[in-house]
Write a protein that binds this DNA or RNA. Sequence first.
DNA 1: TTGTACGCGTTATCAG
DNA 2: CTGATAACGCGTACAA
Lengths: 373, 373
Amino acid sequence: MNIHDLARHLNISIGTVSRALNGRADVSGETRKRVLDAAKRLGYSPNQSGRSLRRGATGMVGFMVIANRARALKGEAFFMTIFDGLQSVLAKHSLDLVIYYCGADQNPETYVKRIVQRRLVDGLIISQTTRIDHRIDYLIRQDLPFIAFGRSRSGGEHSWLDLDFESVAAQSIDHLYRNGHRRIAVATTSDDVNFGQVYLEACRAELASRDIRLTDELIIRGSMSEAGGYNIAERLLALENRPTAVVVVENSMAIGLYSKLHEAGVPPGRDIAVVGFDRSLTNGLFLKPSLTQFSLSLVDLGCWLGEHLLELIEAKRKGSPIPFARKIWPLEMVVGGSTMSLPASGDADSLETSPPEQKSHFKLGARPTEASV
Amino acid sequence: MNIHDLARHLNISIGTVSRALNGRADVSGETRKRVLDAAKRLGYSPNQSGRSLRRGATGMVGFMVIANRARALKGEAFFMTIFDGLQSVLAKHSLDLVIYYCGADQNPETYVKRIVQRRLVDGLIISQTTRIDHRIDYLIRQDLPFIAFGRSRSGGEHSWLDLDFESVAAQSIDHLYRNGHRRIAVATTSDDVNFGQVYLEACRAELASRDIRLTDELIIRGSMSEAGGYNIAERLLALENRPTAVVVVENSMAIGLYSKLHEAGVPPGRDIAVVGFDRSLTNGLFLKPSLTQFSLSLVDLGCWLGEHLLELIEAKRKGSPIPFARKIWPLEMVVGGSTMSLPASGDADSLETSPPEQKSHFKLGARPTEASV
DNA sequence: TTGTACGCGTTATCAG
DNA sequence: CTGATAACGCGTACAA
């Protein structure tokens, strides 16, 4: 079933069929109706290859995901929620979202080159950026509209979006500092993905601004998983001068951390304060004690990606200057029981603030309900 | 940069370029080398639309994922691991994997029709099947090779793969029964996705074979999330005659369940036994107490999908009869602390087995290590 | 071994 | 308003 069959069936020319189907003005109302009816009845839709070839555009937007990199963002609850926002924006402009999955045995740079050179998409979003990401260097030299989800040191002028790790670090450290914590460990990822490093440096800076030096022994790396968190806790507990608090870059790691701390008789929230991160994969509100964590709107984030990518595509189409954008996405702290305790030792020498229970400037985790998630 | 440009650059015809690039025999070694070198140097790869149009095949395999349906399988750790296996098999045959994301505001049936009619892929895998799934009815009438990941009542002869819910139910109920549990609740999903129902019925049958009737009050439904599990626990605790054990169809629900049980002073593993499900999203090994759960090889599952889809595609190409397949995927129980306790009441009247500590026919969860995950 | 020419299915141009 | 026809980029049958 192609356009010729449909035209023959209706005893009109393929040109008219095409015009009717594509909503062009110069076709009579009656003819249009006949064509549309017949198309629906016979289950015809245009062959995408033919259409793309002729139009020079595929009507598709790609989102590239890499296997095994940053399992951090390992929830579909993460990416899928973003896809939802993204897709809803693209759909309004008749663009389809397709996800390109770069397998563990494939080279991300080679992969992205093929996507570009084969002209598979009209726009592309790449995720899980590394500090030096050759995909970005390559894409900048092409004329394909793209957005990097994640900062990178690579490339020059290009559009990117990233989570506000600096704000997360600031809110976390501030919260812990006000509660009297002075010896704070940072649990981050051993992956080469950029955000682990960004987060670590943000924490270091926040601590430094309070005259606390983040020593190497307090930087503990592990894989983005429960097992990684468990392993981190083991090394944390082995330290001679044990920290009174730890910030963790991903919530599933917090589960493993909790596990080991409970086993060791050093319960989180009592003997050691714990701050988590994004709740989209594991909602730390349901851990015991509930995990202080951050929330963000991933749907809105997806919408932003869609809207900006549309701008880029539109600008390219019209030949106008490219409206590059850089966006830092906000996250809001939700305080849980894991940071309610004060440090046990005399560390809290300069405790100048009120006890945490009275801190109303933080959003407290509400009682869990079905509707709240 | 298209094939004409490349041919002109080399002072040869496009036909020769095409043959060289596609590894045909009838081209001299020297010419082939020149073409391949130039293609690499100039960054040329064939336009996919032109190639697809000419070949009548896209070289792509689609995997359709639906938003908000069965958040059960909500881990990338779930789908992504499958993609890994699938992609590795497809790559050997020069097929690309693309994921089609059907948004929450899109109709899955309409979505799949477009994929088919526009000839976007040479083969398709659909996931998250419902009991009555019109996608299957539709696909059976088309000539596109496809596999349904998930059983369904829809359609006639077609290939599908599903997890062995019957075996999970059998292992779970058997384990609990041997430990003396007689009053067992089933926590399943309120989604319309098929497996919640399949799992429930499998549990019902297993209980029935032991002369236990699964009453309605012991069937508790909730959303596939921590909040859903929390909610289920609330209703569980409100029952007059409280069950001594509960089986849960998804692990993140177990987190919420644990949370409420701890709050209520009815700790899991002591006052109530809990059995989880697949560990790919949340590894219950790191909960306290560790969750009795099931493991399976999702990479192998993905490989099976790839291999069978290749068979289907190949059969279609050769015009040979379609080698439909039905596959039930095995899961293996890993016993954790959540089912170590015996029921407190006199319920265990007919306890005829040895205490659980001595049951060596079950695989016990090993000490958590980084390597073990 | 290589070059030429056709057609895959579609949309756009242009003449009627 | 409609029909005929060219062109998009490629692969391949056939001729050289």
